[in-house]
Amino acid sequence: MHTLPEISSQVRRDIVRMVHKVNSGHPGGSLGCTDFLVTLYFDLMRHNPKNFSMDGENEDLFFLSNGHISPVFYSVLARSGYFPVAELNTFRHIDSRLQGHPTTHEGLPGVRIASGSLGQGMSVAIGAALAKKVNGDKHLVFTLHGDGELQEGQIWEAAMFAPHNKVDNLICTIDANGQQIDGATDNVLGLGDIGQKFKTFGWDVVTIKDGNDLQQVGDGMREAINRTGKGKPICVVMHTEMGAGVDFMMGSHKWHGIAPNDAQLEEALAQLPETLGDY
């Protein structure tokens, strides 16, 4: 069994290699959310990679609302055993199940909703959480959203619905990296105090100060899980750094949606030990 740091290093290698090969995709947010997704899929979630079912009854579910960080999602799904790791090689290519943004349309195991057009995942997750309640299924529903994504109005429709209806089997995590395509979120359309906003809407809020520290992510998410079932949905505000793990991709929004060239790929891989074996 590999350790979480080992898995994270390999997932980051997968991300930059996938994006480099097809010369498109979104490495910045993918690298920033690697520690979160690795923690969820390899430590916290009770799930069934070998026997994927769309309904996901009696297992925890995860919905990626900010679908553009598909590279990290695909890598974590493949490395968890949802589909062959070699398939990462087809990312964004014609006839691939690994579309630019995740979809159920091509039947890729592990994906339960299409995402990419932002702001829709929280509503979907609420629906899945309600279905679990109707079915008497005690498992949890997790989501991930970008902070820029919170500019979408539908998010706040959903944010109002979940506490009113005591959807307390839901943990929505916000990737607070402070960046979006056109620059810093503070400059584009300031989000203010995200945690306070959700608190005011009636959510229980957990903060993870460094979402690129596996220990902190694990502790924060375990705390969030402990708070489920108490009448409130949980919002985790997780501060991350876009591009985390590859020094030259960190500290700006520049690597939101561009791919490294050959030299940059080598430079990135040199910082990321191969642990599980490249695909």
Binding site: M54, D55, G56, L61, F63, R112, I113, Q120, G121, M122, S123, V124, A125, I126, G127, A128, A129, L130, A131, Q154, A158, F161
Partner: peptide, 8 residues
């Protein structure tokens, strides 16, 4: 969105 999620 909730309706879509309920199908899952």
């Amino acid at each position: 969105g909730i309706a879509a999620g309920l199908t899952i």
